[in-house]
Structure formats: C-alpha cells, structure tokens
Simulated scan of single mutants.
Amino acid sequence: MAKIKVLILDNDTTSRDILNKSLEESKDIEVVGIAFNEKIALDKMRLLNPDAVIFGNNFNDLSASLFTKKLLEAYPGKGVIIITDSNSKNQASDTIEALGHGAFDVVLRPDPNISDIEKIKFIERNLSSKIRCFSIKKFSRMARLLTPIEETQPYNGNFKPSCVKKYENSKFEIVLIGVSTGGPEVLTNLIPEIPKNFPIPILIVMHMPKIFTKPMSDSINRVSKIKFKEAEDNEVLKTGTGYLAPGGIHLIIRRNLKGELYVLFEDTPPVNSCKPAVDVLFKSAVGIVREKAISVVLTGMGSDGTEGVRALKENNVPCIVQDKESSVVWGMPGSVAEAGLADEILPLNMIAKRLTDLVMK
C-alpha cells in the first residue's frame, strides 16, 4: 500500500525536526519534503505532489488562513493540517478562518516544557491519526457538503423510516448535537440553514480545544440566521439560539425552579478521551428533558455519543445521524447507526430541513 505523502511547512528548525521525527515513526506516512517559507512550500507542492501539508502556524508574515486559501485554490483536494499554540488567541482566530477555507484539521503544539522525546510522542499520537483520517476520506469529497439545499431535491420523507412517525406530533424543547472531526466545516454549513424563527435552543458539543471554541462560535454567528454563541456556566437557554460547549470542560443540562433549561460546566475526567464529551451532555438530558429532545450525531472519529443516544432512547428521544457519504469520518454517526439507535440517516444538506420540519410542524 502506498504511503501517505506529507510536506512540512514550518519556519522553526526545532519544530520542523520534531515534526519530521514524529512522522518517521509512522510506517504508512512519508515526509517527502520540508519547507521554511511559502515559496519553497508551493514549489515543492508542484514538484513532489504530497497528499497533505502540515502547517506550523508560527510565521510572522504568513497566516494559516491565507496560505490555506491560496494552496487549496491551486491544489484542490489536498489536505492542510495546522499545528498551532494553545495560548495564542490570534493564532486561534487565524486557524478557525483557515478551517473555513478548507483546512482539514488542527493539532495543538506540544507543551514547550516537556522533553523532545515527549513532544515527538505527542505529535505522533495526535497528528498521525488525523493524516490517516484525511487519507481515508479525501477532502475533495467534502464538496458534497457545500451543495446548497436549493440545488438538491427537497426533503420528501424518502429517508424517513416508519418508526419515526411517532415523533411527528411531539413538542420538542431542545436539539442536542454531537460532532468531532470535520465539525467546523459541517457546522458552518448546517447552522446557517436553521431559520431565524427556530423556536427552541440548539446545544452542541464539538471535540475542540478551549482556545478555538469562542472564535469558532463567533465565526458561525456571523453567517447564521439564529444567534450562535459559546455556552456559559449557569446560562439559561433561549429559544432560537445555538450554543457551542467550551473546550476543556464537560457541559450538562439542568432545569431551574422556573422550568427553564440551563447549562452547567462539570470539571470531571474525560469520557471517551474527550472533554467535553457528547455522551456526558446526552446522558445529562435523560431525566431533564425526557422525550422532548432531538439528538443529532454528526461526523467524527470514535464512538462518543453512542451511549448517550442509547440512554436518551429510554425516553424515546429520536436520533438523526449524518450519512457516510457526507461525513468526513463516519465514526461517531456510524457507531450509532451500527448499534441500531439511529432513527434517520441523512446527508448533511437535509438535516437542517428535517430539524425544522420536526420542530416547526
């Protein structure tokens, strides 16, 4: 089997060496070139034709967003994975913009205080899996996600199994969404299709480091018809508003004495190696919202969300999962579907319409 060819672009010698050594540990990945500026990187793209570029986001004169835009315009279908610091708000905003331009994913740079050996292990563990993920699901197929709803056949019920008919007359209070790899692209396409008068809140857990969730929510809010924001501790949920869980903390749902739904932060250990975890949010809603929720599981690696959906099923909560073709990775939605817990399996460009039909019938 051919190796996945990777080009490293980083202007820091030590960082380049660590990236190179970490990827050398992977038998299925080959570093075919190293560049320390944009011109060399673009020349090597033409000469070496790598599958993906690893962009070290530490340039003073080159932003990840502009580089990603330029590279993918010239070489559509290539992967861009960004390595960025965990404490730079400027880099975080730039990275979110790069994801909007089609960058595949982001990896946090390892703690500068740990040893080089630990840095290599950290990068190998966190970066290699994303490179493999990109290779399995070539990013060019994400073009399906960008097809406007009006250019597809309208939702006509063909995807709806008969078992969902019992939900048609339900009065829902909240939509709960879980998403991981590919989430920024998916949410940027899904949320703007939710109508302005959507009458219930939408609560989302995405596997994303803390530094990115605020700029991510701000970015979605700029293109959304509903208000979209990062969730706050003890915040009462409002109708027609979308909330993104902050990174690094679990999010749970509760009901106050007035009967209002609100969210709490819960600083407990990771679940499914994730914090926040979709399972934690979904399970917290079981005794609170009962049958008045809709669960949605979108693209992502792993199986986070499956046990949460299973728990929600005790209250007959319907579950929609994204289909394999429109997912970047059909791990999380595939796990729910294979467990027999999905009521509907839909392409991304039909999910907003389906939610609107269920909630605003």
Rank of each mutant, 00 (worst) to 15 (best):
M206S: 10
N158A: 12
G259Q: 04
Y243Q: 09
V336A: 12
K361G: 14
S135Q: 12
Q91S: 08
I174V: 15
I123T: 01
V289L: 11
Q322K: 09
D304P: 06
R254C: 11
N189F: 07
D43T: 07
N37T: 00
Y75F: 15
G259V: 03
G248N: 12
V317T: 02
T152M: 13
D61Q: 06
K313A: 12
L146G: 01
Y155V: 05
L348H: 05
E150R: 13
I34G: 01
D94Q: 01
L348D: 06
S180C: 00
N113T: 12
I191P: 10
I123H: 09
A293V: 08
A2K: 13
L190I: 00
V106N: 03
D12F: 10
K160W: 00
S140E: 14
K196I: 04
C163M: 13
E325A: 13
H207M: 04
S326M: 10
G242N: 07
N197V: 04
T13Q: 15
V223D: 03
R254F: 05
K3W: 03
D85A: 13
K165W: 03
N316P: 03
P333H: 09
K39R: 11
G100P: 01
A342Y: 07
S162M: 08
T95S: 11
E260L: 00
E235F: 00
E97H: 04
I320V: 14
K313P: 00
K214L: 12
V286K: 15
G240T: 03
D105H: 04
L48F: 10
P148D: 11
K119W: 02
R254L: 09
P199L: 01
V31I: 15
E325F: 11
T147S: 04
G331Y: 10
I320R: 07
L71M: 15
A52T: 14
N126D: 13
D116Y: 00
T14E: 15
E73M: 07
L72I: 03
G183D: 06
D28S: 09
T356A: 13
K130V: 05
S284K: 03
G248T: 10
L264N: 11
S335A: 15
L99M: 12
K324H: 08
L348W: 11
G102W: 07
S295H: 06
D10L: 03
A277F: 01
I253K: 02
M206P: 00
A352W: 08
F212D: 08
V309G: 02
K130T: 01
V107G: 06
A64S: 14
A337N: 15
V205T: 11
C319G: 09
F55R: 06
K138G: 09
E168S: 12
N349A: 05
K160I: 14
K165L: 10
S63V: 03
V236Q: 11
I220G: 04
L348K: 13
D94N: 05
I177W: 05
